[in-house]
Design a protein around this nucleic acid. Structure first.
Length: 780
DNA sequence: TTAGTTCGGGTTTTT
DNA sequence: CCCGAACTAA
């Protein structure tokens, strides 16, 4: 048991205390993962069957990596049998097994947040509510909060204070939306993210035999990032652990950054109430960062009121001070960071992957990317619009989803008219209406009750063709392997062709993305997994977890690239050199957090997380001006810079005067002289300087003028009489058309208001024009 | 019904 | 600036 020797006293105690409840408070960089890994390895070495261990992590990637590390100690064949994954993926798996208990099919679809919001949007529209008031994001958050606190629509109605909240905000119909939303999910054989936890609670509550089964199965429970669990998750853990109480939770209250998602620090604080005889371990020695970084981070987090007392310290070197840099603009900030990386790399012989750039919001990546590209520094963005969120990927996945689960409403809406097949908005509305009235899904309506649908024959035919096509895919679900069917569908619906035809750079990348997805499915098809008993997996099996995959789960080629990501995404990671950019008021801390103490404290913890990612050196940067929604705005340095004890900062005097001449900063920068955008930024800086005021106060008159002009010209066209007088257009007359010029009417057919004229224009040839629309003037 | 265009509004953070 | 919704033209 060599691994025990590599642990310090506190770590070792936590690893060896295997029976009974315990909590490990793990300061940043204190070897938490190490403890978790060895604890599990230790359990297995002591004879615990891996099948009896459930370990819940925050990301699937963390689970994968931990399994790998455990495998190195106890052997891979043992490690693979541990139940390890995120709450969502583990309990989705269990829900599929036990689906019939809660009256769901086991192949239920998992709606991602975009699907949820679309459904909410549709419901708000159907209920004829004000979509400004009932914004999908607002409604989704409210429903999500309810579900995370195990409040069903029924309970919601009974809770006066919740209902009162809605009334006060003018959203009294919230609970009606919630109820309908759940109904529609069920009808679609779908669950949203929160349902995966909610329904697990229902399952364990209403089916004692099931609870019993899993209590026996999971004799040892571990929960990582416990500070980020919500009530729903807390209760699942509590129930599962109730029999054996071999529960070990690991976390750090100082790193709780998911309060907006319902995470509840109180879960940590309440642990002692649920398990009065619990054992507490504190990991306080930091192995990651320099003394300066640790002390600076401590000085920041000390400003928070709510926290568990601990003393994080380190034996590491003193290290560099934390550098603070001011730039004139967001672009210049990007240039500074890229330039700094470039120079450090050369001077200190570092690799790209030694650097990370962290920001509060995804939109900040752009300025960084541009600058890195200019210096040919390879980088990788984590998060952002994830691969699976891209339109082209969601479109094609929607076909697969609908094939596997025809009741999936969101999938059906996505593909029924894409690529365009003449089934428009009106038709879809009729289908939805009838689905609501009949209790059937939309698919049920078009596949079973098509003759009752009040649409014309052509539309009926097209709907029928669509149904026939989808059925032809469905029959192959269990005969054709995942890749073959996926490829067949992509080709035969014409999606691949349509994307291939688009030769714009964006179109090209869309096509490549779809190819990448197909490659992924191919890989999956050929993977050898005992679950599939020697045959190739089916497409439905590929779909099971796809909604739970995120960018962080993408294969992590050990490329030598600079990492760019949000601070949230950086949790649990570490890098020698870290830049925290956009250190500005209203950005970090976020504007939305300023009115609420607990939210501001969460922002501060976020800053703490950012700082403690750094091993050797941290750099904080902020810009005086920043583009937001395409508009230049003035910004102030973040209060968090002030909150770091000044003795840990390298904050040059020159920062005091924002308008001094800094043009020499550009001397010897690696961009060279020819680079236009460098000098562009310089120009904007000088322009600001000469006006001696920040750019924000400029009212931008030049911006508005053309807008007004446009409006005027629009009004003019609107007041023009609709050109064609009824009855004046007959075969033989000469006409003029705004675009096509002179022409001769050859024929007029159809009855009002659908008269269609065939007109010959010497300029463009023969045209069919609807008189109701076309502006035709009779000549003479 | 569809395609093309304009308009308005949005930015936290993510399983 | 960038997206989707709404509007407009055919």
């Amino acid at each position: 048991m060599d691994y025990l020797k590599s642990l310090n006293a506190a770590q070792r105690a936590a690893v060896e205390y295997t029976e009974g409840p315990c909590m490990v408070i793990a300061g940043a960089g204190s070897g938490k993962t190490r403890v978790l890994t060895y604890r599990i390895a230790h359990l297995i070495n002591k004879g615990v069957d891996p099948f009896n261990i459930l370990s819940l992590t925050f990301t699937n990637k963390a689970a994968r990596e931990m399994k790998e590390r455990i495998g190195k100690v106890v052997g891979e064949s043992e490690a693979r049998n541990i139940w390890m994954g995120t709450f969502h993926s583990i309990f989705a798996r269990i829900l599929r097994v036990e689906a019939d208990r809660i009256h769901y099919p086991s192949n239920f679809t998992i709606y991602d947040s975009a699907d949820s919001k679309n459904l909410i949007k549709a419901i708000v529209k159907e209920m004829a509510l004000d979509d400004k008031l009932y914004k999908p994001s607002v409604v989704a958050n409210r429903i999500s909060a309810a579900k995370n606190n195990l409040i069903s629509p029924k309970v919601y109605r009974e809770r006066a204070e919740i209902m009162a909240d809605d009334e006060v905000s003018g959203r009294g119909k919230m609970v009606e939306i919630y109820a309908e939303y759940n109904k529609r999910l069920f009808k679609s054989s779908a669950m949203d993210f929160d349902d995966l936890l909610y329904k697990t609670n229902v399952l364990l509550r209403d089916h004692p035999d099931v609870l019993h089964k899993y209590q026996h199965k999971f004799k040892y429970l571990l929960v990582d990032e416990y500070q980020d669990t919500n009530f729903s998750q807390y209760l699942i853990v509590k129930k599962l652990a109730a029999l054996n109480e071999n529960l070990c939770v690991v976390g750090d209250d100082a790193q709780s950054i998911y309060g907006f998602r319902g995470a509840n620090i109180q879960n940590i604080l309440n642990f002692r109430k649920d398990y009065p005889d619990y054992k507490l371990f504190k990991l306080e020695q930091n192995y990651r960062s320099t003394k300066n970084i640790v002390a600076a981070a401590n000085s920041v987090i000390g400003k928070n009121k709510d926290q568990i007392e601990k003393n994080v310290w380190t034996d590491n070197d003193q290290g560099d001070l934390i550098k603070v840099n001011r730039s004139m603009s967001d672009n210049e900030e990007g240039m500074f960071v890229a330039n700094d990386i470039f120079q450090d790399k050369a001077n200190l012989h570092l690799k790209n992957k030694d650097f990370a750039i962290l920001y509060r919001t995804n939109s900040q990546s752009r300025a960084m990317e541009e600058s890195l590209r200019k210096l040919n520094i390879p980088y990788r963005i984590y998060g952002g619009t994830s691969f699976y969120q891209r339109k082209e990927i969601k479109d094609i996945l929607a076909y697969y989803r609908l094939t596997a689960n025809p009741n999936d409403e969101e999938a059906l809406k996505r593909v029924i008219n894409y690529p365009a097949r003449g089934i428009g908005k009106t038709t879809l509305e009729k289908i939805t209406l009838q689905a609501g009235a009949s209790g059937k899904s939309q698919w049920g309506v078009i596949s079973e009750d098509l003759d009752k649908l009040p649409v014309n024959g052509g539309t009926k035919q097209r709907l029928n063709d669509f149904v026939t096509m989808m059925k032809s895919f469905a029959v192959q679900l269990e005969t054709t392997d995942a890749f073959s069917l996926a490829e067949h569908i992509a080709k035969s619906v014409g999606l691949l062709r349509e994307l291939y035809a688009d030769k714009t750079p964006e179109g090209l990348s869309r096509y490549e993305n779809v190819q990448e997805l197909l490659n992924g499915i191919k890989e999956f098809s050929e993977s050898e997994n005992p679950e599939f008993e020697g045959r190739k997996p089916f497409l439905s099996e590929f779909l099971l977890d796809v909604a739970l995959l995120t960018d962080a789960d993408q294969n992590d080629e050990d490329d030598d690239k600079v990492s760019l990501m949000t601070i949230h995404a950086s949790k649990g990671l570490e890098f020698p050199y870290v830049y925290v950019v956009g250190m500005e008021e209203n950005l970090f801390p976020s504007q939305l957090s300023l009115t609420d103490r607990s939210e501001l404290e969460e922002e501060r913890r976020l800053f703490y997380v950012a700082l403690t990612r750094a091993e050797k050196k941290a750099t904080l940067t902020y810009a005086m001006t920043r583009y937001r929604f395409g508009q230049l705005n003035h910004s102030e340095p973040s209060r968090f810079i002030e909150e770091v004890d000044a003795k840990f900062l390298d904050k040059p005097e020159t920062l005091e005067n924002p308008w001094e001449d800094r043009s020499s900063d550009f001397g010897g920068n690696p961009w060279g002289k020819s680079n236009r955008s460098t000098s562009n930024s310089g120009n904007s800086y000088y322009r600001n300087k000469s006006q001696k005021q920040p750019a924000k106060s400029q009212p931008e008159p030049t911006f508005k003028a053309p807008k007004n002009l446009k409006k005027v010209s629009q009004a003019n066209t609107a007041t023009k009489p609709p050109a064609t007088k009824p009855g004046s257009i007959v075969a033989g007359v000469q006409v003029t058309h705004e675009k096509f010029g002179k022409g001769k009417v050859l024929n007029v057919e159809g009855v009002h208001p659908n008269e269609k004229a065939t007109v010959f224009f010497p300029s463009v040839g023969q045209k069919q024009l609807l008189l109701r629309f076309a502006k035709l003037d009779v000549v003479g």
